[in-house]
Design a protein around this nucleic acid. Structure first.
Length: 374
DNA sequence: AATCCGGGGCC
DNA sequence: GGCCCAGGATT
């Protein structure tokens, strides 16, 4: 059995490739899950679903997809929407720049492509938020074109199928995988083939304990024949998790709660939140949230009352959140549209990331009487 | 090439 | 608590 190191994919036996194409397409046709975006070839639906599925599980995406296409049924309706509306539909899904790019992308399609999703690689790559994977997925699934659509699942399948030991965290390996994807994709049905690879990765060729006994490519799999399927793919880079202490201010003016928009850059950019300061743990150089409110907004508040602590884990970041309650003493002299005082039942009008939504939900259960006693 | 950007499920 | 992700943009 061959080990296909860098560049050796050109030597993959032609019969082996044809067998893989035949077995995989038949398996996909018979065994694929019925999902909302698989009911159609509409390029718009395929686009939305593929972007939502980036780094996100199918079960999470389904309700978001249905709500999204209900609210924005076509490219025009998305292009003419306000960004706030688009973000609202994305609330809780994470990686919010995906929603902003989707919105920008719809505008580009309306302005530069006459409102139709382009069907060539060259044009489709001009749309913000569409990279190599999403481009290939749209071309093959919506337009039946012979294009590679290589994501994490496909790299795992390839690494086992062809016994590839290169580190899939490296970009040269990813590029190599894309070449393999373009080389082996079925000319008969590129859509079934690409979706078949991903479905196989999701259902059979799973990261841990792959179900080889049920795999349609059992006989073609190099790793399985050597019994090394569990050791692949090889992925070396490990991001370090940084812990950050975050002070959050729950400020009340009577029964109204203070919220403000986060900065236009960085984590959770441009989304609504309660005022917060971040500082790296073990460094005492941060200002307290109370001082920030006074210096940045000229807002005087009572001494903070520590309420509770909570953790929130992002991919490479751990937030240790300390939540303090304050009462307003003196209004800010600045009239800033990005500062608002809202009643609790108004929080659904604004877009809050999950980390803050959890806090707001906990706050809600604390009685107003208690706040007034501060 | 390295870094940033969420969130949830699983063990 | 640590692991896994159906990536793309920016620097």
């Amino acid at each position: 059995m061959t080990c296909y190191t860098l560049g050796a994919w050109k030597n993959i036996n032609k019969i082996k490739i044809e067998n893989i194409q035949k077995h995989l397409n038949l398996w996909y046709e018979k065994n694929h899950r019925k999902l909302p975006w698989r009911e159609t070839n509409n390029p718009y639906y395929i686009w939305i679903s593929e972007v939502m599925l980036q780094q996100t599980r199918v079960d999470t995406v389904i309700p978001y997809f249905l709500n999204f296409i209900n609210k924005f049924p076509n490219i025009e309706s998305l292009a003419y929407a306000h960004e706030e509306e688009v973000l609202k539909m994305w609330e809780g899904l994470g990686y919010y720049s995906r929603a902003k790019n989707l919105h920008r992308g719809a505008k580009v399609i309306v302005e530069d492509f006459n409102g139709n999703m382009p069907d060539t690689l060259e044009e489709i790559k001009k749309i913000p938020g569409i990279g190599p994977y999403t481009a290939g997925a749209i071309l093959s699934i919506a337009y039946g074109k012979r294009a590679a659509a290589v994501d994490g699942n496909v790299m795992r399948v390839f690494s086992r199928l062809f016994y590839i030991k290169e580190d899939i965290a490296e970009s040269k390996t990813r590029k190599e995988m894309e070449k393999i994807g373009g080389h082996v994709v079925s000319p008969q049905n590129p859509s079934f083939f690409n979706q078949g690879l991903m479905e196989l990765g999701a259902l059979i060729c799973t990261p841990t304990s792959p179900k080889c006994i049920a795999c349609p490519l059992f006989l073609e799999c190099s790793a399985k024949s050597l019994g090394v399927q569990e050791t692949l793919p090889i992925k070396k880079k490990k991001p370090k998790v940084k812990t950050v202490e975050v002070e959050m201010a729950i400020v009340y003016k009577k029964k109204k709660l203070l919220i403000m928009k986060r900065s236009t850059q960085g984590l959770l950019a441009n989304l609504w939140a309660v005022p917060a300061t971040e500082r790296e743990l073990n460094f005492e150089n941060g200002k307290s949230i109370r001082l920030e409110l006074e210096e940045n907004y000229g807002m005087k508040v009572t001494e903070g009352k520590f309420q509770f602590e909570k953790k929130h884990i992002f991919t490479h970041l751990k937030w240790k959140m300390k939540i303090y309650f304050f009462k307003l003493i003196e209004e800010s002299p600045i009239d800033d549209p990005e500062i608002k005082w809202i009643l609790h039942d108004e929080i659904e009008k604004y877009v809050f990331p999950t980390a803050f939504m959890k806090i707001l939900k906990e706050i809600e259960s604390i009685k107003a009487d208690e706040v007034c006693k501060l």
